[in-house]
Nucleic acid binder design. Sequence first.
DNA 1: TTGAAAGCGCTACCAG
DNA 2: CTGGTAGCGCTTTCAA
Lengths: 334, 334
Amino acid sequence: MSLEEVAKRAKVSTATVSRVLNNIEVVRGSTRARVLKAVEELKYQPNLHARTLAGGKSRTLGMIVSNMENPFFVDVFRALDADAHAHGYEVVMANTDYRAEQLVASIHLMIARRVAGLAVIVSEMDSSLIQELSESNMPVVFFDVGAPRKNLSNVRVNYNRGIERVVEYLYDLGHRRMAFVGHHPTLGPTSLRERTFVETVSRHAPNVEWRTAVDADGLEGGRHATRELLHSGFRPTAIICVNDFMAVGVLRELREQGLRVPEDVSVTGFDNIRLSEFCHPQLTTVHIPRDRIGHLVFESLMPDQSRTRPPGREVVLDTELVLRESTGPVPAVL
Amino acid sequence: MSLEEVAKRAKVSTATVSRVLNNIEVVRGSTRARVLKAVEELKYQPNLHARTLAGGKSRTLGMIVSNMENPFFVDVFRALDADAHAHGYEVVMANTDYRAEQLVASIHLMIARRVAGLAVIVSEMDSSLIQELSESNMPVVFFDVGAPRKNLSNVRVNYNRGIERVVEYLYDLGHRRMAFVGHHPTLGPTSLRERTFVETVSRHAPNVEWRTAVDADGLEGGRHATRELLHSGFRPTAIICVNDFMAVGVLRELREQGLRVPEDVSVTGFDNIRLSEFCHPQLTTVHIPRDRIGHLVFESLMPDQSRTRPPGREVVLDTELVLRESTGPVPAVL
DNA sequence: TTGAAAGCGCTACCAG
DNA sequence: CTGGTAGCGCTTTCAA
């Protein structure tokens, strides 16, 4: 089942078969029909590798995420995938589980695949990797990391402003003992987001007593971090989570400790994933437009298509505080 | 950056470069070092397409799922992915969103990629597709669908028995008005699982009044199905869900309608995904060993590796009822 | 409108 | 241990 067999059966050259398969409008109708018939009869299936190799260009985009269990990433993927399909592209996803070595492996694999573009949606990036990607000359778009340059674009959300909104809101509600639940960063001892929290608090709410706890990104991580937090003796009146996914885990541990939300302690998430509306109590969170991120990512990756975002650009998305049931005024001291 | 350039720089033939890149232990140490140096200096990245084309075999497995938002599929994928990586394989995932056309497209794409094996984890399969896959001669493993034959293996779970366990348990608790919340099957008017419920009820609990509701697989679908159910005037004392993911949506709608779980109505899920323990109340559900499924899938796909599952086989996994907070005795009639 | 043929980058076989 | 070379299946000039 190769082009040649089809060609033979249709009594044309492989070039012609290739033409009809690629919808090149120069083939005579009758020839075309003959070829299609042969394709059908032989149940011919093209070989993508041969096609990519010969054509020199791939119709595949790559997307690397830190944690595909977190619905946030899945949402971005789906938006990107939809756009890609609409334009005849495929997207293959790779998961790093926040492991640096896996990130390196995934990036190399994507390069080996000669993807038409690569979206890197991970928390932290090694600068040598950025360098390597830059030199690879393939269109790359990062989420929330690195600075744009030549083939490297950037989509980021104003995380600082989001955390600020949360802290201010909680502060106004009277909270003076806050905790931040984050997840392990790929590199460095302190995650960027954790640092953002710390700085925001000291700037906007200096008289607040705070603590941070860190664990794996996920339901279990949120739960565990909370257990540690409580175990340390600290009694926050509000727990600010790095994302909704972990917040749901926090909610569970609190429930098990007999602490009511929001009566005893307020909890906030981040991302506004669908689940944040389906847990109990529903999470107060910060909305991040994941669909837009997916669309922007696609635009950034398209090589030359008309009227799309040029490479080497950066776009910053703003966030929005979403008030729901998990937050309330600070509990009255008895 | 092709093999040839590396060869030139290292002053060896492309054959030799290929050998060191593929760890073929016949190259002299000094030559090897020279090649590696050239690779390093040129930042050479192999071309996977050329490699696959020339070698005639791919190190990629494919996996097609119906709904990657549902953690069930993600869990299976992760187990498979882990095994694959451990053996030097990659797995690319495709999502069909329960759309038949998308399934066809995904399968064709996988064939075009010449994957070394394909896992098809979707609810329903067209028999012509099964035929096509069978003829493709590539190792394929289905989940819960079709019958094994030559290159087609099968992993399934005893869904019937699982539903039976749920119905019996609920029946013993005194429930006589049950509802089943399912999701759209790809084909046919009634999903297999819905039918299983109906048959189980009539066999094991003939005097039970029941109804079914169907919607999209997901949080929103579960919620919507429940709303419709309640809207119809039917007042089940127990709602059996096709999976945990939808059950979480059911829980939310019930809460909004002011119905308490399990005091007013019991709810059960299926799959025992992590989330089922993190929602409130925690779901009584049926455990499906997703890790094992992933491992079995991998084994079924491995061509000839020693001591692995031969192709064309079928393995049926049993389930286990997990009792948690979402079920209880039928509410007393006042 | 169609065919012939030169690669695309790599693997694998055959010599040496 | 290493080099030469024939493809793998397809796209893409260049001629016809």
